[in-house]
Design a protein around this nucleic acid. Structure first.
Lengths: 185, 185
DNA sequence: GCAAATTAATGATTTATTCAAG
DNA sequence: CTTGAATAAATCATTAATTTGC
């Protein structure tokens, strides 16, 4: 590659360029027209080499991956579709409330199968999770510590603890896939 | 510290819990789903009182403040480049200028709130703050057209020369068409 | 050294966006 | 055009660090 000198094979956006593009996108411009592309390009060229097609492709890819991500999320949530029941509580408008709506159903199925790609949308190439290793006890969630009255706020018993498998399989789940199971009761 | 019997009003993570949470985060888990939150919670409960919502909020806050930190950093970079002051001379009579640049670029980076200066960073004192996003709100003289899609071609009043052929389908919302309108250079 | 006063961190809530379905 | 669900941004509130005068 790079036959003549130091010509990169493809556009390498600078952090500023990415940031500005994302901000433009977030502000509502999802598909710029030609004029907009031209102007965005000329402004971004201040931060590095860039041409119109880079901007065009960036918006196309960004929008596509946005939709893809959201669709995958919705798909996973549809897998657990049963437990979308309304509860009426005083805090039902809070963020974490919506997060815990489903009860214990996520445990029924260990996890979404690693090969559950929906039709054409994927790219995850996630290294497959190994055994599901339900290495957590029967703790059922909340407040498992004993109530000894001691608040135990930042008890200084800092010792070299062996971290439990923090790079275990379940952590490798992709970001943004926050399916809502019942983590709160 | 809270004396015995007094329940602290909020979760006070132990150093072990914080360490483990940070380790998990660093290893790539930014938004745990409900099942993951359950697992983390039940394991962290070994080190002290904790419940699911604490884990949930911890990740939310940690991720948000990570982003915030990074955004501040990039903001400084942008600031030293004087991006906000830079304007291209030929922009000022164009559609792009009116509906894109002046209102939106200044608020590209919602930098930290002016009330709380975190780590010795001074307010940039840019006076371009008030404008609310008037993306498509041409209420005054700029009401030439709905300016998405066919640009200025409604009445046949093509005022200036077209820098780009503004007609292609990819301008609408259609991204299936890979044919460019000749804007690629 | 020691608390009151002040400031910085951070846990917990609220508000605004976003996408897509109805 | 409205609504649901998810979540990021912004904000509120409380705890911890620290400064300060004695």
């Amino acid at each position: 590659m790079s036959p003549s000198g130091i010509t990169p094979s493809r556009w390498c956006p600078t952090p500023e360029q990415v940031m500005i593009l994302e901000e433009i996108y977030r502000n509502g411009l999802k598909t710029p027209n030609a004029t907009q592309i031209q102007h965005i390009t000329s402004h971004l060229s201040f931060y590095g080499k860039i041409e119109g097609k880079n901007v065009f492709y960036w918006f196309q890819n960004h929008k596509a991956r946005d939709r893809q991500k959201l669709r995958r999320k919705l798909y996973k949530q549809l897998q657990q579709h049963h437990f979308l029941m309304k509860r009426h509580r005083f805090d039902e408008h809070t963020q974490f409330f919506h997060y815990f709506l489903p009860q214990h159903v996520p445990q029924l199925l260990p996890f979404p199968s690693p090969s559950h790609q929906k039709e054409g949308e994927e790219e995850p190439a996630t290294e497959v999770e190994g055994g599901r290793t339900t290495w957590f006890g029967g703790d059922e969630g909340t407040t498992v510590a004993e109530e000894d009255g001691e608040t135990t706020c930042r008890n200084g018993t800092l010792r070299t603890l062996e971290l439990f498998p923090v790079r275990a399989s379940w952590m490798k789940e992709e970001e943004g896939t926050s399916g809502n199971g019942g983590w709160m009761n």
